[in-house]
Structure formats: structure tokens, C-alpha cells
Amino acid sequence: MQETPRITLNKLSKKYTGSPVYALKNVSLNIQPGEVYGFLGPNGAGKSTAIRILLNFLQPTEGGATVCNLDVVDDSIEVKRNIGYLSGDLSLYLKMTGEQYLKYMGELQPATSKAYIDELIKRFKAEPKKKLGQLSRGNRQKFGIIQAFMHQPKVLILDEPTSGLDPLMQDEFYKLIQEAKNKGSSVFISSHIMSEVQRICDRVGIIRDGKLISELSIAEMEGKASHTFDITFKDKVPKKELSFLKGCKILSISQNDVSLVMQGRLSSLFAILANNEVIKINLGSADLDNEFLQFYKNKDK
């Protein structure tokens, strides 16, 4: 039996006062417990609008949304007990130290424990004694992440969470997401970094001009995406057979070596490989960037 979705958007629409167009139009989606959902789309597509409606910062024009089966407008206080939120354009009280900021946030919504805050501070190498105004963008972002996770919420809503973080801290963040997921938390994440989405998300929704134009799992996306192969044959490269292969593009070729990009089903390629003795094969990861870009660019897709 399928569990009740943690987040539900039901024909959610938003039209800002004075604007002739909808910033969000009839968006419906469900996010399950323990699922990491990537919300993708170009700037101004409506991602932040949807997120800000979930937080009750904006009122929906039509439709509705629930978090943990609670209406985001009517039960907004209860909804927020279950949410950890990190805003895209993170603004902090710059005159406060990181410690003071976390204390303030903790007074408004108690953290799981002081030990857990200390653990997060340690993991992200945050500097709690310094004033937030003295910290770099990335170091401030760490406090944004800590305040979102410190009460171990059931739902995490994260708007471009890794912006400004160095690769080591990004890695730490991905581990934290994985831990939250393992504990059953649902994560709704907006990001432009394709490798990040590929690494942490189970499913993605792509939004453009306020409409959800596609929803698919990362596995489905990887199935559609192109893969790069570097193959060394014992004998000559079966060039003729490869050139007839649907979705195959040869990048470079020599006597025994070939580099090629294969899009779509790989079974036909493996059939050729089975008929020719292969010494070595290197498979590059699926290139989702191109897939995402198609969604970003192509209005008819």
C-alpha cells in the first residue's frame, strides 16, 4: 500500500497582483516519504513561487497544497513544525554571530539536541563565534543548512542549497541529504546543478513558464541520456556495424580503439560487442546535462 504523500501540490496556481500572467499554473505533484525530489527549471520558471506557497509566504490564487497531509494555508503553523527550509537568496542577521543566530532559530523551533547542532557545526566546519556579516557567502550558507536540518524535520525544502559551498562541503551536504532520506524525510530541492540532481534526487519535476512540463525518475532520465564508451577491440574496430547503429555517434576511431556516444537503448551496441572480442571497455556516466538542457530550451518537448 502506498503511503500518504508528504508533499502534495494540487492544481496549484499563482498570479501576482498586477501581473497578467500566471507565475504558476495548474501544477500538481506528489512527493513520497523518503523521496528526494528535484525541482528544476530556468530562472523565473516558478520554482521559488511554488516553494514560497508551501511556506505560506505567498497565497495560492487557485488550487492548493498540503505538507504531511496538512493544508499549507489553513494549518500553516502545524505545517512548519514539520519543515526545514533553506531559502535561495539566503539572508541572515549579519550583526549576529552564527551561534546567536542558531540560538534564535532554536528558540523559535527547538533543535533535536544541542549535541546535534554541535555535530552539524563540526561536520560543516562552521565558525559559530564569528559575526555572520564577516563570513563569506559559502560560510554563511553553512548556517542556513544547519538551521534547516537542526530539528530533523520530516520535510526539507531547499532552494539551491549548495550555492557557495566548496566541493568538500557539497559532499558533506549530500551525505546529510542521504541520512535524512534514510530516516524517512522527504526532500524538495530546487537546483541548477545537474550533477547534484543526478547524485541525490530520486525523481525530478521540470517546470517552465509556470507549468510542470515533465516528471520522471533519475533512472528514466539516465535511460534516455547519452553514454560515452571507450572500447578497445582485439581486432579491427567493426566500423561498418557501428556506423549503422541507431543513436550511435563515433567520436574518434583508430585501428583497435573507438570512442563513441550512445543514446537510448544499449542492447544493439552490446550485440555488436558480443560478436567481436573486446579487450577493454570504459563507460562514462550518463550525461544528463544535455537532457536537462533540452527541457530548458525546447518549448515543444
Binding site: L55, N56, F57, S76, I77, E78, K80, R81, I83, Y85, S87, D89, S91, L92, Y93, M105, L108, Q109, Q147
Partner: peptide, 14 residues
């Protein structure tokens, strides 16, 4: 204006 209000209103505060 500086969006710090969102830090507060993202918590269970009416």
C-alpha cells in the same frame, strides 16, 4: 526587504 523575515516565518510562528 532583506528577507530575514523568512527565517522566522519558516518556523512555527504565526
Amino acid at each position: 526587504q532583506d528577507k530575514t523575515i523568512e527565517s522566522i516565518l519558516a518556523r512555527p510562528i504565526s
